[in-house]
Design a binder for these strands. Structure first.
Lengths: 132, 132
DNA sequence: ATGAAGAGAAACCAAAAGGTTTCATATGCC
DNA sequence: GGCATATGAAACCTTTTGGTTTCTCTTCAT
């Protein structure tokens, strides 16, 4: 009843689907029109759209006999958040700014500059068993 | 001579690789140790690491007979930037803040709120042919 | 009502992905 | 030298993925 789901990281892994997402930014389009932009069959496009739909990246709206696909970019926040976990570990100046602007909680992350010489960790590694 | 490359979106599509990335955040580890954290063979881990390496997400440092793998999270900026293209289209409050904080150029994007009734675009769609 | 247009479902296929086991090579240690 | 450790390469296998063609179902227009 809940409907299928599809991992969003996998959803955006395919270049064709990324192009579709771009195409749908700001405009909602029916399948036939979308497929005009790609060198593959309409059916193939339809399957990609189903995957995007199952990953909550797009929304379908029935209008007459057509189905208008609409981007739901909020679904990307999962990816964005996943990435933001690593921002404290990189040196891009922008990311440092964001670190202060956008983070409320700075817990659970080893901030860079606090590594206790990673040279000799042979015996006991922190078994992070990370959430993802 | 340039070495193989691997699409970073595909690199992070695999859950096992995402866990590896998490594991390598803040610490550099050799293959054998990394493989202790996964229910797959060391060789399989090695192949994942090669993919991460080819997508510039990790760096290898030879130390004696071991290869220490080190995270290079900057590679994620490509993904981050790709996502940021869509932030003007969603309503998350944080993203709006970022829109001002992080963008130098706000060109080439239809800001949300400027849609001219998407109901009747039947004839001429802007052929975006987007960069990705 | 009848035919054309829009779209998903089914069945099928080739290639890519993720794993495994086995083999080869380099380095460390006595 | 000779053996154990660390790791990648090769060959191989199975499942997933992206695509196709064909078929069916709706809905619009005449």
């Amino acid at each position: 009843m809940t409907g299928e789901t599809y991992d969003i990281f996998q959803a955006i892994a395919d270049p064709t689907r990324r192009k579709m997402i771009r195409l749908l930014a700001g405009q909602e389009l029916p399948v036939t029109v979308i497929s005009k932009h790609f060198p593959i069959s309409r059916t193939a496009v339809s399957k990609h759209l189903r995957i995007l739909s199952e990953s909550k990246l797009v929304n379908v709206k029935k209008v007459g006999r057509e189905r208008r696909y609409q981007l739901q970019p909020e679904a990307l926040s999962e990816v964005k958040e996943w990435i933001s976990y690593f921002e404290p570990f990189w040196d891009n100046k922008i990311s440092k700014l964001q670190h202060y602007v956008e983070k409320e909680e700075s817990s659970e992350i080893d901030p860079p500059g606090s590594e206790g010489d990673p040279g000799e960790e042979k015996g006991g590694f922190p078994d992070l068993t990370p959430p993802d």
